[in-house]
Design a protein around this nucleic acid. Sequence first.
DNA 1: CTGACTGCAAACGTTTTGCACGGTA
DNA 2: TACCGTGCAAAACGTTTGCAGTCAG
Lengths: 133, 133
Amino acid sequence: MVDCSQVLKEYNLKVTPQRIAIVEEICLKGHINIDDLFHSLKLKFPSISLATIYKNIHAMLDKLFLSEVQIPNAKSVYELTRELHSHLICKKCNKIEDIQLDTACLVSEVTSKSSFKPEELSVVFTGFCKECR
Amino acid sequence: MVDCSQVLKEYNLKVTPQRIAIVEEICLKGHINIDDLFHSLKLKFPSISLATIYKNIHAMLDKLFLSEVQIPNAKSVYELTRELHSHLICKKCNKIEDIQLDTACLVSEVTSKSSFKPEELSVVFTGFCKECR
DNA sequence: CTGACTGCAAACGTTTTGCACGGTA
DNA sequence: TACCGTGCAAAACGTTTGCAGTCAG
């Protein structure tokens, strides 16, 4: 398990109980949207404000500590920033899986076919997971 | 040039001047967001309502006649549905280019590495276009 | 002790809805 | 003519902001 307060310090974010809980929840769930995060944290901090969630998520995005994942037809989810990976989203149960794919070939294809200089890449599959297929 | 009213008919959408203009504008621009579409159409139909734009975009998405493209840190854009392709988004000038990439290898990698059954795929690169790099 | 964080309430921008009118088929 | 589409206004959302009080460093 990640030491959440340590991680916050490394990213120059003041350590507060709310922030620790946010990081813990994201670690636990892997990916979470604002609403689910808010409702989970309400259990531990009944008076927590949605504004606090938004402000902290943005602070963590700004520090590149979190990444946003855009989901077709649903709210964005947030995850800890880590090695480039792709997402598999189930259209039935909405579960999000991570998968490591070889995207180097895509990058070189872009470079050879166009004059575009790629920096970031998002690869999202929608379909059906093992349980729902 | 596409015959816009013919295309609307094929998708079982009643042909109205506003709808023709929406399709024409999307053909012309390739990709457009709601706001830009609204402002373009205002020139031709000064009394057009944003509600009309939203209702029609949704009608066309429902018929799978349009596709939505999610853009990191910006509003979604809409394009005519066509063959699977990827998007290159310039972080400086915000231009969106289409590119045909070989994504079959990604699909087979997903299939072999997981039990997920992929159906749709979104591949979006952000970086710098020829002019801005 | 100081500046940053929290929670509240209000403001904001975007999208959706209901309704009366008008236009398409 | 019957139904669907349009435009308007209001409502509903999701997100952001300002502020006063509180807490971390």
